[in-house]
Amino acid sequence: MKLLVLGGTGVISRAIVAEALARQHEVAVFNRGSKNHLFSGEVECIVGDKANREQFREVMKDRQFDAVIDMISFDAKDAQSTVETFQGRSGQIIVCSSTAAYKRPFRTVPTSEDAEQLVEDAAFPYAFHKAEMERYLQQVIEAGELPVTIIRPSLTYGIGAANLGVLRQNYNIVHRIRSRKPLVMFGDGTIPWSFSFAPDVAKAFVGAAGNERMYGQHYHATNEDIHVWQDLYLEFGKLLGIEPELVHISSSMLKEANPDLFAHLYYEKSYSGLFDNSKLKLDLPGYQASISLSSGLAMMLEWYEREGHSVDESKDRLEDRLTAFYTDACSQLKGLF
């Protein structure tokens, strides 16, 4: 099949390119051209900025694809640009949404796609705009204009990730454990969660291409191993042979202190992160997310050390201040009795 990946250099999308190449598909990517060296196989690189909608349509006007995988639409206008650009030029559009788009609290745990509602409150903009995007795409599906498939990953890690950890500390987690410095955990660390990794999620996107059973449908694509949030740090500790020290601060307090950094904890990750993949497995037989938390974090650790990742000093100082705040708060609380 001839596939186009809009993006292609992000954590999930670069794994999609690798999976598509492994399946012998003909692959093109469209992005701003800054990281096209990432690809190990033959990939056509189309350079442009999707935010420039006129330029995007002009670049694509004479191109045809069996399927377009859109990893860089974040609101309804983005999705509309994709649909209008590829109307009559692609056999299918596969769009990356997010489990963040669901209204909380959930009606079902593990969460089932067809039992949930989409966010209507704009307090968490990322989730609201993804939900608005899905509402637009549902109109396209109902109008029968173009085969559309929506895939909703949950929190996904992989090579290139910059989203790992409560503070999105990334390599700093390894640094702090090795330095015997405490790490901040939101709440009591026992929110159930399934941590997913990009190569597993990529199999759902590539498997959806040309799969008529998946036209007009929406799916989770997540790991289903059950963990709790603190397992993320405890598993890193096992890999490093050092038990990490965790301090606990409520997601509400963190969000009030810095909404830009911590809103995702309060609005999304304070609720269960367990998702039912039954629907995907029914329509994509053989699908299985097989990368465990331990092996996935071992992959991340190997990547950090291979590339010589440096400490984010500003994040490290912030975590020092937060852990000191926790210690002071505990002392003041004891003083009340």
Results as ranks from 00 to 15, higher is better:
A143H: 06
S34N: 04
F205S: 08
H218R: 13
P244A: 14
D75E: 04
V201F: 07
L297K: 08
S294K: 15
V47K: 08
R180K: 13
I72W: 02
K35N: 15
L301C: 00
D316E: 15
A257C: 13
D312V: 07
V311Q: 12
M253P: 00
E42K: 11
S252C: 09
L274T: 11
F39Y: 14
V11A: 01
G10N: 09
S252G: 13
S331G: 11
Q139M: 06
R89N: 08
W193T: 12
A100P: 03
A20W: 08
F195E: 10
V184T: 12
N170F: 01
N163G: 07
V5K: 10
G91N: 04
Q64Y: 09
F275L: 03
D78F: 14
I46F: 10
I242A: 00
D225G: 09
V5L: 15
T149D: 10
G296S: 02
Q288V: 01
L265G: 05
R63V: 09
S194F: 08
R63A: 06
F337P: 03
M299K: 05
R176K: 13
S73I: 02
G207K: 06
S196R: 12
Q139S: 15
G273C: 03
Q55C: 04
D260I: 05
G296C: 01
K2N: 15
Y171S: 10
S290N: 05
A76N: 10
Y219L: 02
L293K: 04
S270M: 13
I226M: 12
K103E: 14
K77H: 13
G8C: 07
A202K: 05
L336C: 00
L38W: 05
R32F: 01
T327P: 00
A329Q: 06
L232G: 05
L234Q: 15
V119C: 07
L137I: 08
L155N: 12
V59C: 01
Q332R: 14
L183N: 12
R23W: 02
T111I: 00
L164T: 15
K130C: 04
A22N: 10
G165C: 06
D75R: 04
Q64K: 07
A67Q: 01
V148Q: 12
